[in-house]
Amino acid sequence: MAVLVLVAMLVGLGPVGSLVGLGFTAVTWVLLSRSLGRSGGHRWGPADTITYGRLILTGGVAALVADAATGSVHHVVLTGLAAVSLMFDAADGQVARRTGATSRFGARFDMEADSVLALVLSVYIAIHLGWWAVLMGLFRYAFIVAGWALPWLNAPLPPRMSRKVVAASQGVVLVVVSAGLLPTAVAQICVAVSLISLCWSFAVDIRWLWLQESSRRRLPAPSRAFAGAGHSEPVLADPVSDLLVVKPATT
């Protein structure tokens, strides 16, 4: 609410932007409270506070994007909020590791904060570049919808540096293009290249998950039972109700 009031004082917010900002606040609060209740006694730490701060800034961005859809564009404030949120993306993970407070909840929280910011910014650039650009923010959400029909897509993924690089570059491209400093043709090329890299990254993950599923199916039933007994609960087993929306991440 403080961010929304500050944005309204700086540039003004129309009724649509105000409603979207309030709705974002309410939905985030409800889902986050529910997730904390399901986290098995997770202790809120400094890293969680940083991630929550990023999510709060994204709420201000969402309100400005809604205003932009009605014709009120405020590049500087919108890009500033998004850039600060993006800069703190690396901070919450570092703080969690240095304070020994890494957790399933924290990793998922960070992941969803990234996804929501990407979705909001992709809607914003789509206003200027064409609605095809919104695909930048829809990849993970489309992935989880596919996971409802193909449960093997919900298996946990191993860490992969290229996935982190693609995700980081996606955030940079979204913020730079949102600033409106690039010519339209250059901005479209940057977004197209980022989309291609996202397609490649998701294709690599889907192939890995498919190979794992194929290997599991080839095992005899007793072997599958024995193999399953030694595995812990998947890190991201519940794609919808764990946190804000989806899994797995490109980060």
Rank of each mutant, 00 (worst) to 15 (best):
L4Q: 13
V7M: 05
L10Q: 14
L13C: 10
L13K: 15
L19A: 11
G21S: 14
G21Y: 04
A26T: 08
V27L: 09
T28Y: 02
W29C: 11
S35K: 09
H42K: 14
A47S: 11
R54E: 08
L55N: 10
G60F: 06
A63L: 11
V65F: 04
A66I: 08
A66M: 10
G71F: 13
L81W: 06
A82Q: 05
A82S: 07
L86F: 12
L86I: 05
M87N: 07
M87D: 01
G93E: 10
G93F: 01
Q94H: 09
R97Q: 15
R98T: 13
G100Q: 05
R104N: 14
F105Q: 08
A107C: 04
R108A: 01
F109H: 14
E112K: 02
E112F: 03
A113K: 02
D114Y: 07
V116W: 02
L117I: 12
V120W: 11
L121N: 02
L121P: 08
Y124K: 06
I127P: 01
W132F: 13
A133C: 03
V134W: 05
L135H: 04
Y141M: 14
I144V: 13
W148R: 15
A149C: 11
L150R: 14
P151A: 00
L153N: 07
P158L: 05
R163W: 02
V165S: 04
V166K: 02
A168V: 06
V172G: 00
S178G: 05
A179R: 10
L181Y: 11
P183D: 12
C190A: 09
C190P: 07
A192N: 05
S197T: 14
L198T: 12
A203T: 11
V204H: 01
R207V: 03
W208K: 02
E213P: 10
E213S: 15
S214H: 06
S214L: 12
R216S: 15
R218T: 08
R218H: 15
P222I: 02
S223D: 15
A225K: 14
F226G: 02
G230D: 02
S232V: 04
V235F: 13
L243M: 12
L243R: 09
L243N: 13
V246I: 11
T250W: 15
T251C: 13
